[in-house]
Design a protein around this nucleic acid. Structure first.
Lengths: 246, 246
DNA sequence: ACGCCGCGTCACGGACCCGTCATGGTTGTC
DNA sequence: GACAACCATGACGGGTCCGTGACGCGGCGT
């Protein structure tokens, strides 16, 4: 699904644990599922990583040196809508309660299975991204003479109304929300169909882009809206302006 | 009974929880979205705050000292149409059932993510404000050469009087009130029959729409009033103007 | 009691959309 | 300049979704 909150599909998942084995393990599981992953070994590094990478999800061990896990939760929350999955050594319910009331999104006791971890991650991402869409239903964009109103499913180019299919609109919004950042075909597939929901060749994106450009009256050679980045993906060609709710 | 019109956009959201951390958390989330927020730490304070501030929404933890959460719900209900969002520690379904049957508008189990909370708040506010309008009955719209007066059950197209059935009129008003936003078939069913009252296939909406378009003289292929959004629902085709009560 | 009007279901036909493939052009590299 | 990789495009088949007509049911008024 589409995430409008300046937290594009390209954002990585941040894994925080002081045990390098755990970190490596989790990283392996997630990367096998084609998620990007960044890591931190203590709370201080975690906070730095959060600011630097703006992750789409934080997987966090509550037991941390330097800066306490709860502090990381609070700081993360303060930064925005980044969801948090708390890990914790054996089912110490104390941790669980504390973590959850402090604002974590979910809790996973160690030891956990790869499948479990990935399932939780998927669930959280889906939920948070659906909610982001819901909350941001009123979001509108302008990019050059292109105007997009997601809630109204309305797109205009130079004042002229253009009718897009649902997928075409999602593609467009994903690109605009990324604000010029490059999105890979896989990321766009996630954005369009939902995380991990796509049973589709990534070449399908090419076709979506073609149809979208067609309807917008865009020329691949001199793109006004959707620019191709050879070997990488696509991005918005013009600067994007986020408009206030109607 | 609180006068609906005396509860403008500027009215605050009241957050009630005995845990100061939760209160602070929720306040932070909501204020980041530019909502005004007032808070109360127990039921007694909550009741006072409701009378004093006439909030547009109450976010309420059911577990409260002094005065029980359910009591707060009842008193709030007695005061007027203030919507209530119930929070509750872990998915204790008991609370949920109790809260909802007692008259809460929605329920959010802890832990919740910021996006989730904000999404619910937005949804509830949208819904309640639409309902308030509806209840007042003093609703008139203009959309192109279409005029609708709900209170008088009167619809005119280009000056010519059109007779709609009750359901057709509700459908039309729902679409106009949404002001171009897409409404799913389920949402339209709720709007037409009342929330959860519909024991009906959502395809019935198609038929209502067909009959409505027929009477309005609308063409699905080039809609002037009711536009189809494939895979999503329906929406008002033209910009809608809300007229002052006659 | 009868007929009428409004409501809801169903099934059918068509339009639209989506995803794949093959082809040809473009870009970048060696 | 040749080659490989990558991308744009057109065509096509399958599938989904929507519009429509027909029918049945039930309430209401005559």
């Amino acid at each position: 699904m589409i995430d409008l909150m300046a937290r594009p599909e390209s954002a990585p998942i941040l894994v925080v644990d002081d045990d390098p084995k755990i970190v490596a393990l989790v990283r392996a599981y997630l990367e096998r599922e084609r998620f990007r992953v960044v890591t931190a070994g203590d709370g201080r590094a975690a906070l730095r990583a959060i600011e630097e990478h703006a992750p789409r999800l934080v997987v966090l061990d509550l037991m941390l040196p330097e800066v306490d896990g709860l502090a990381v939760i609070r700081r993360t929350r303060a930064m925005g809508d980044i969801p948090i999955l708390v890990l914790s050594a054996r089912g110490s319910t104390g941790d669980r309660i504390q973590g959850l009331t402090e604002g974590a999104d979910d809790y996973l006791p160690k030891p956990f299975s790869p499948a479990e971890l990935v399932a939780r991650v998927r669930t959280i991402l889906r939920r948070s991204e659906r909610d982001a869409l819901d909350a941001a239903g009123e979001v509108r964009f302008r990019a050059g003479d292109l105007e997009v109103d997601l809630a109204r499913h309305r797109v205009r180019v130079a004042g002229r109304e253009v009718v897009l299919s649902v997928l075409e609109l999602r593609l467009l919004v994903a690109l605009l929300a990324a604000d010029g950042r490059i999105l890979s075909r896989d990321q766009l597939l996630d954005a369009i169909h939902g995380v991990g929901e796509a049973d589709v060749t990534d070449r399908a994106i090419d076709v979506y882009v073609k149809r979208l450009r067609e309807k917008l009256g865009d020329d691949p050679a001199a793109p006004r809206f959707v620019a191709t980045v050879r070997g990488a993906g696509y991005r918005a060609a013009t600067t994007v302006e986020r408009l206030a709710p109607a």
